[in-house]
Design a protein around this nucleic acid. Structure first.
Length: 726
DNA sequence: CATCATCGGTAACCAATTGG
DNA sequence: CCAATTGGTTACCGATGATG
């Protein structure tokens, strides 16, 4: 932590703030016109010691916009040096990057330089975008499309959120008007949001952001072990169940392949097909296919077919995101959308941008991108990172570099906010000095919350983006991070491989030893338990004989009349959390099918409601997968254990597995090699083939009382039988 | 682990309903 | 009355779960 006086010195004077930084309500045109200092590509002196001084500044009054800045890497280095030695009490800064400049300046110049990273990036990317539009117009003065877009863009506030989109700021529009810019996650999701509308959800179509396939691939890489238990996958599990129950018929999404290509996918649950659209016509990506098949397999018994759909092909290497979004749009809403013209991609990008602006300007969208927070607050004096705004989302990322979002699919829409978006800059300027300038941020409830995701402050991010240069081009301390020679590398690899083999060998031996021990231990325990139980039983029976419950040969005396009464139970049908009912979707599916294909309005009228099921169909894929995993997690030297499986499952999900009995699980086992208990192949087969539609062609419920809403069970069957024998 | 009672899905048949 | 359609009931036997 820097001493208080140094932090005071790092604060940019209040009166200069408004002059040095554009207001966030300033238009993009104003941003481009805003004066910022020249940045020297290299520095005369790169050691931080040449910059930091302990004497008073020789030029306390200075206009920093006229003073060239050092390269970002040098700025970062100075900041680090300052933070590493707080006891030094530096008071001024020199411009050692400018040859012949021997003046020293106030320390706050460093803060200003740090902030400039963000501003420079924003200006650079907008400058490119606007210039390319102007070039189009200059080349063809009748280019109405580009002209209109340019007019609309220039007046937009440069640092505000977009209405009608989640987590997007105006800066995200840059890529649409910069030809040849590759579309990132955020832009692709934004295009998908444009396609989505209320009409689609009523047709059972879900348009999901690219996070959906990304999550699936990640989950599949992790072997899906956490899928059924972790609450963070709740949405995904619900989606899977919805697809089984017919609430969701189609899922459309766009997936990233190999980090450099976008493809579109539509899962059609009706025809059990996955439609795959690739604008480069590559074969279906194997990892993506495995991940999707895996997820579908979690919920559906049948295997889905994959179909490469012939679609418009791109003639370039950077428009795949645009094509993928267009394929989705044309597939699910062909009346609203038409295929793109691959010969006029630049126009198509602008048209897309126009649609986004339409939505932003439309009255019907009230809320502003929720995660959008823009701040200039830097972090030289305080901690390394700070949390900005909503801890769940990253702040707006100025410039052409965007980070992937991590919104879970089917997140509920953000609550509407007022249309007046507070200017972050204005807010900063108006608030107290301590808030604005260097030093630890003021105590706020936001800071105290445990942050899921920490976000590097804007200034540092801006600098880091610019310092990600190849090693050969690095300057200053970065040069010291030299690479090992080829020879050293080979030696290291040989050494590491030998060590790894050693470790593997040792591990195999240890595992074997452990397994032997475990078997002995289990055997011993089992024998002990058996003996203990026998003695316990003997004690109990002896006591029973003394109490007159048993005969001398330990056999049970005939029980006196002992009726157990069970209260009459009225079934409450208002909620549908009956796991037994949920585990048998076949009836639901049949009803929906009949509703859809009804040709006559005839037939016997239904008089009573169908009774809800009582027994759970454990072989429905969703439940049976969990049981299999529980088996994997709990098995020991003796193989599977029914009680351990039930305990494991109930500990994790009491509600769902409350009715699972160890006896039932037991009946799914058979003795394999060496008497180890394993799953019966027939059970695995049945779960796989008939998971959602169990049954056989031989049965039916009996009895006139069956299905009555009021369940009458005053006596247990056994006690009834006994009492009737008496 | 064995036993027992009860539930569940479909075929097959009958009943009920509508429309021609 | 017939055709088309759908609900209701029961046989059959495997699945489920309680009990001892």
């Amino acid at each position: 932590m820097l001493p208080q006086e140094t932090r005071e010195l790092l604060k940019i004077p209040q009166k200069l703030l408004e002059q040095l930084f554009p207001s966030s309500t300033a238009s993009i045109q104003d941003l481009l016109a805003h004066k910022i200092p020249y940045q020297r590509p290299s520095a005369h002196q790169t050691q931080s010691s040449a910059y930091l001084h302990k004497r008073a500044p020789t030029r306390p009054e200075v206009d920093p916009t006229g003073l060239a800045t050092p390269p970002p890497s040098v700025i970062l280095e100075i900041i680090e040096a300052l933070q590493l030695s707080p006891e030094e009490k530096y008071t001024s800064i020199a411009c050692a990057h400018i040859p012949g400049n021997h003046e020293t300046y106030p320390l706050w110049i460093l803060s200003y330089w740090a902030e400039l990273g963000v501003l420079r990036n924003a200006r650079k990317s907008w400058d490119l975008a606007i210039k390319s539009l102007e070039t189009r117009i200059n080349r063809n003065s009748s280019d109405v499309l580009a002209g209109k877009i340019l007019d609309r863009l220039l007046v937009l506030p440069w640092a505000s959120g977009l209405r009608g989109f989640d987590e997007r700021g105006v800066e995200g529009l840059v890529n649409f008007c910069t030809p040849k810019a590759w579309f990132h996650t955020a832009e692709v999701n934004q295009m998908l949001e444009l396609v989505d509308n209320a009409n689609l959800s009523s047709r059972g179509i879900k348009v999901l952001p690219s996070d959906f396939p990304r999550n699936l691939v990640q989950l599949h890489r992790d072997e899906g072990l956490e899928y059924i238990t972790a609450s963070r996958h709740r949405h995904l599990r619900q989606l899977g169940e919805d697809s089984v129950n017919g609430v969701v018929n189609q899922i459309a999404t766009v997936a990233n392949v190999d980090d450099d290509h976008w493809v579109a996918l539509v899962i059609d649950f009706g025809s059990k097909t996955v439609h795959y659209f690739d604008s480069l016509n590559n074969p279906i990506n194997a990892e993506l296919r495995e991940a999707f098949d895996w997820w579908i397999d979690q919920h559906h018994a049948a295997q889905f077919d994959w179909l490469c759909v012939p679609c418009t092909q791109q003639g370039d290497s950077y428009n795949c995101g645009l094509f993928a979004a267009n394929h989705i749009a044309c597939y699910i809403d062909p009346n609203q959308h038409s295929p793109m013209n691959p010969q006029a991609c630049d126009d198509e990008r602008l048209k897309m941008l126009g649609k986004i602006l339409d939505r932003h300007e439309s009255e019907s969208f009230q809320h502003i991108a929720k995660g959008f927070t823009f701040t200039f607050r830097h972090d030289i004096g305080g901690s390394d990172v700070e949390i900005v705004g909503d801890s769940r989302s990253a702040p707006g990322n100025v410039g052409a570099i965007s980070q992937p979002h991590s919104t879970p699919p089917s997140t509920p829409p953000p609550s509407p906010k007022g249309t007046s978006f507070p200017s972050p800059m204005k807010g900063k300027v108006k608030r107290s000095l301590g808030d604005r300038a260097v030093g630890s941020p003021p105590a706020s409830p936001v800071k105290k919350k445990p942050a899921k995701e920490k976000v590097v402050a804007a200034s540092r991010r801006g600098l880091q983006e610019m310092t990600s240069v190849p090693q050969s081009q690095r300057v200053g301390l970065f040069k010291l991070l030299t690479r090992e020679t080829e020879e050293q590398k080979r030696e290291r690899e040989v050494r590491e491989r030998a060590e790894a083999e050693d470790r593997a060998e040792r591990r195999v031996q240890e595992d074997l030893e452990k397994a032997r021990k475990k078997i002995l231990e289990v055997d011993e325990r089992r024998d002990g338990n058996r003996e203990r139980k026998r003695e316990e039983r003997k004690r109990k029976y002896t006591a029973d004989v003394a109490a007159g419950i048993r005969n001398d040969d330990f056999s049970l005396k005939v029980k006196t009349k002992k009726r157990r009464t069970v209260p009459v139970e009225l079934r409450d049908d208002s909620t549908n959390d009956n796991i037994a009912e949920l585990s048998r979707p076949a009836r639901h599916i049949e009803t929906r099918y009949k509703e859809k294909h009804r040709t006559h309005n005839s037939g016997r009228k239904q008089v009573r409601e169908r009774a809800e099921r009582v027994y759970v169909n454990w072989k429905t894929p969703f439940l049976f997968k969990q049981i299999l995993i529980a088996g994997k997690k709990t098995k020991d030297a003796g193989g599977l254990s029914s009680t351990a499986i039930v305990k494991y499952l109930q500990a994790r999900d009491q509600e769902t597995f409350a009715k699972l009995s160890a006896t039932t699980v037991q009946s799914w086992f058979e003795r394999g090699e060496l008497g180890v208990k394993v799953w019966k192949p027939s059970v695995l087969e049945a779960a796989k083939v008939n998971g959602n539609t169990p049954g056989h062609n031989k049965g039916g419920r009996k009895g006139a009382l069956h299905g009555k809403l009021m369940k009458v069970s005053l006596l247990t069957p056994r006690s009834w039988k006994k009492s009737s024998n008496d």
